[in-house]
Design a protein around this nucleic acid. Structure first.
Length: 332
DNA sequence: TAACTAACATAATCAATAT
DNA sequence: ATATTGATTATGTTAGTTA
């Protein structure tokens, strides 16, 4: 991530959050297209995205913002006349919802495809751009679908508020959430039983879980499990918060239904690395292992491990993170 | 057929970038 | 410092899928 480069003549640049800065030609194209079709269907959005060279999800965001801007400017009435234009004359929708056929084909439930997004949501209800991309890669579900699914899940299971999310971020000195560390405990026993989700899931409704901090050492995944809820993570150096986490060593494999951890062993060419550092890992095994109040023994696989080795891994993890953590950037 | 949920939408707001 | 704008939130609707 390059925070020092100037935007000048770059096509677009990505910031810590993956924010795009459209150049003038991109904006012109989008605005011209928008005038003719302010509510493009999926295929059209993809076409625009291809022409401009950005993901379709970005087009969707741009359209959303541009519609809002137009409404604010008082052009909403004219938009009403245009909005069915170019949609092969479907039945006019109530409000501005796309009609049948104009929408993307409804994909099957991510839960039936893989429990990667489910477990990601169980761990963290607010996904950053980087962490969102990882389960998307693991499941072949587009990132925009992952994002939508998370939004729907949050509406179904309001486990934490935005402010709690913000407060739980460990901000870097410049105010940016360099490493997002979810410290809010989601008590599943309070969730409404509105679906078969919980009962069919790998954990019981009466259980709660806490997020974990991952790191990979010598081919092993070490999960840093919270020992207690940390108050006021703001402005606190990451190194200090590490002390509140208990190392738990996880091993690969096991349950065939359990996908491989989506923590990338090889951090590929994704735009955002720092966010994934703190969040993008799949916790394996029984969720009951994560209950901090009971101080249960670590996962069963750990029984085969030598405790000194575990502690050594933990020490190495701390050392590595401390060595690589740049206080000016909030990450390495 | 009812329940569930993916795929949309809006308004409000935050935050990065431009002016 | 302020305006612009991309991104995210909460919340609501529609319609396809599933039990």
């Amino acid at each position: 991530m390059d925070f020092n480069s100037t935007p000048s003549d770059k096509l677009q640049k990505e910031t810590w959050q993956g924010r795009i800065v459209y150049n003038q030609s991109q904006k012109s194209i989008l605005q011209a297209r928008f005038e003719h079709d302010p509510y493009p269907e999926k295929a059209t959005r993809k076409q625009w995205a291809w022409e401009i060279g950005v993901p379709e999800s970005k087009i969707q965001i741009w359209l959303k913002n541009h519609r809002a801007k137009q409404r604010k400017l008082g052009f909403s009435s004219s938009l009403e006349e245009d909005k069915t234009h170019g949609q092969d004359q479907p039945q006019p929708c109530t409000q501005e919802y796309l009609c049948r056929g104009a929408r993307q084909d409804q994909t099957s439930n991510p839960r039936s495809q893989s429990n990667v997004p489910v477990q990601a949501f169980e761990r963290k209800q607010f996904l950053d751009i980087g962490t969102r991309a990882t389960p998307a890669k693991q499941t072949a579900i587009p990132e925009s679908r992952i994002q939508m699914w998370f939004q729907d899940q949050r509406s179904l299971y309001p486990g934490q508020s935005r402010s709690e999310h913000v407060n739980s971020s460990v901000n870097s000195p410049n105010g940016r959430p360099g490493l997002t560390v979810q410290q809010h405990e989601i008590d599943l026993s309070t969730l409404p039983g509105r679906s078969h989700f919980l009962s069919s899931s790998s954990f019981s409704r009466s259980q709660s879980f806490q997020p974990v901090l991952p790191c990979v050492i010598q081919g092993q995944t070490v999960m840093m499990q919270p020992m207690q809820v940390v108050q006021g993570g703001e402005d606190r150096p990451f190194a200090l918060t590490l002390g509140n986490y208990m190392p738990v060593l996880l091993t690969m494999g096991g349950d065939p239904d359990t996908p491989a951890p989506f923590w990338p062993q090889h951090q590929e060419d994704h735009q955002d690395h720092q966010e994934e550092t703190a969040t993008g890992v799949l916790q394996l095994g029984d969720y009951s292992q994560s209950q901090p109040e009971h101080k249960k023994p670590p996962p069963q696989d750990l029984g085969d491990m030598d405790i000194s080795y575990i502690l050594q891994c933990w020490d190495e993890a701390c050392q590595a993170l401390l060595a690589e953590w740049d206080p000016r950037k909030g990450t390495h």
